[in-house]
Design a protein around this nucleic acid. Structure first.
Lengths: 224, 224
DNA sequence: GGACCTTATCAACACTGTGTCGAGAGTGTC
DNA sequence: GACACTCTCGACACAGTGTTGATAAGGTCC
C-alpha cells in the first residue's frame, strides 16, 4: 500500500471524522500532537513537503519515528490536518463576505477575492504544501475539490442573479464562467506564492484579477 | 542527492544539450531508448507518474534496472524527454498561428487557444505527468516556465497592439492581463484533463475561455 | 588471431525512507 | 497487586533509488 492510499484509510477508526490525528483518547499526548503539527508548519517554511520525512517531523517534535505513528497514520495526514484548518478559516471568511455581497456585488466581489487571497497568503507554506499534496493524495484532491465547489457555486449564483436583474449581460453558462474565474485566481495566486516566473506581482494581483472578473461578468463585447 | 536534483545534472556530459537521454554514442541501443520512452508513455496512460517505478520502465522495455541507468539518469529524465517533444510541438503550433493572428486578432485568438488545447489534450497523460513532475523537479518547473513565458509575451504584445490601435480599451498592464489569462487556460484545461470536479466540460471549454479572453481584452465596464 | 577499445548488460550492494511489531515503562484504579 | 490504558521505541521487513564491478559481445587495427 502506498502512502497516498494509506492516508485515506484513517476513517476506519472510531474518532469523529474531523479528527484526522490520533485515535480515541485525550491526554498529555495532546502536546505531542501539537508539537508535530507545529514542526510540520515550521519545516514547510523552509522546504517543500517532499523534502520533509516522517523522521524530520518526529525529531522536530522530540519523539522517535515509531512514536510519530502513534499520533498520525502518515506524513500526509499531518498536512491534511493543517490544511483542514486553513480551509475552515478561508470558508468562514467566505460566508461572512457573502452576506455583504447582496447589497453591492461589485464592491463585494473585490472584498471576497481579497479575503481569499489574504487567507492563503498569510500561510503560503501551507497553501503550497496542499497543492503539492494534491498531486499524490486522493484525500487532498477531494478536500480541495470541495473548497473549489463552494466558491464556484457562490460565484455562479451571483452571476445568475446579476444577469436576472439585468446588471450583467447574458453569455456562457454562469457556472462555467465561475469555474474558469475561480480557477484563474487559484492558479495566479499559486504562481505568486511559489515564486514562479511569470507571475503577477503581489501588489497588482487583486487589481488585475478584479478587472478580469468584472469584465468577464459585466462586460459585453460587440461581435467583430 | 535527491532525484529532482539528479535529473538536472545530465548536462555534465558531452552530448548536445537537447539530448536528455543517453550520453555520446549511436548504436542499436537506440531501440532500447525508444522502448523506454514508449513504455513510459504507455504506463502514464494507466497510472500517475508517482506510481511508476524505474523498475516498471526497465521491465517494460525488456531490460534490467541497472541497464535503464545506462540510457537515462533517472525516471524524471525520461518524462522530461517526452515533455520536451510535446512542448516543441505546441510551440510550433503557436508560431504558426501567430502569423495568421496579425490580420484578425479576434478570430486568431480562438484559433490560438484551440491549438494549445488540442496539442495537450491529444496527449493528456503526458501533460498530466508534466504537471506532476513540476511539483518535485526544478528542471520541469523551468521548462514549463519557459513555455508560459512564450505565451504570455505573445499575448501581451497582442493586447498592447490592440490597445494602441484603439480596438481595446486601456486597463491593467497588458502583461499582467496576459499572465492571468494564460494561467486560467492552463488551470482550466488541467482540471478537465485530470477529471477534477469542478471542471468545465470538454465541449464547452473553448467557448467559455474565448468569451472571457475577449471580454477581458476588449470589454470595458462602466464604474458602478 | 589476439590485443584493445567501446557499447551494453546485470547481479549484488549501499542507502534512504516508510510503516509494523512486540516488548516494555509509566500512570492510574479497583 | 492485578488489570487496563496510554505512550514509547529498538528492531524489523519492505520498497525504491542509484552505484559498482565483473562480464559479455562486437568492432578494428596490426
Amino acid at each position: 500500500m502506498n502512502p497516498a492510499q494509506k492516508a485515506g484509510s484513517r476513517a476506519s477508526g472510531d474518532a469523529p471524522a474531523t479528527a484526522r490525528g490520533r485515535r480515541p483518547a485525550r491526554a498529555s499526548g495532546d502536546d505531542r500532537e501539537r508539537a508535530i503539527l507545529e514542526t510540520a508548519e515550521r519545516l514547510l517554511e523552509e522546504r517543500p513537503l517532499n523534502e520533509i520525512s516522517v523522521d524530520d517531523l518526529a525529531r522536530g517534535a522530540g519523539i522517535s519515528r515509531p512514536t510519530f505513528y502513534f499520533y498520525f497514520p502518515s506524513k500526509d495526514a499531518v498536512v491534511l490536518t493543517i490544511v483542514d484548518r486553513l480551509v475552515a478559516e478561508a470558508d468562514a471568511g467566505r460566508e461572512e463576505t457573502l452576506a455583504r455581497l447582496a447589497s453591492d456585488p461589485r464592491a463585494g466581489l473585490r472584498q471576497g477575492l481579497e479575503g481569499f487571497y489574504a487567507a492563503f497568503r498569510s500561510r503560503r507554506a501551507v497553501a503550497l504544501a496542499a497543492a503539492e499534496l494534491r498531486a499524490s493524495n486522493a484525500e487532498a484532491r477531494q478536500l480541495w475539490s470541495q473548497v473549489m465547489e463552494g466558491w464556484v457555486a457562490d460565484v455562479a449564483a451571483i452571476i445568475e442573479a446579476e444577469r436576472a436583474r439585468g446588471a450583467a449581460p447574458p453569455g456562457q453558462p454562469a457556472r462555467d464562467l465561475a469555474i474558469a474565474l475561480v480557477q484563474m485566481n487559484e492558479r495566479a495566486q499559486y504562481a505568486s506564492f511559489a515564486g514562479e516566473e511569470p507571475a503577477i506581482a503581489d501588489e497588482r494581483m487583486l487589481d488585475v484579477l478584479v478587472e478580469i472578473w468584472l469584465r468577464a461578468i459585466y462586460g459585453d463585447v460587440a461581435p467583430g
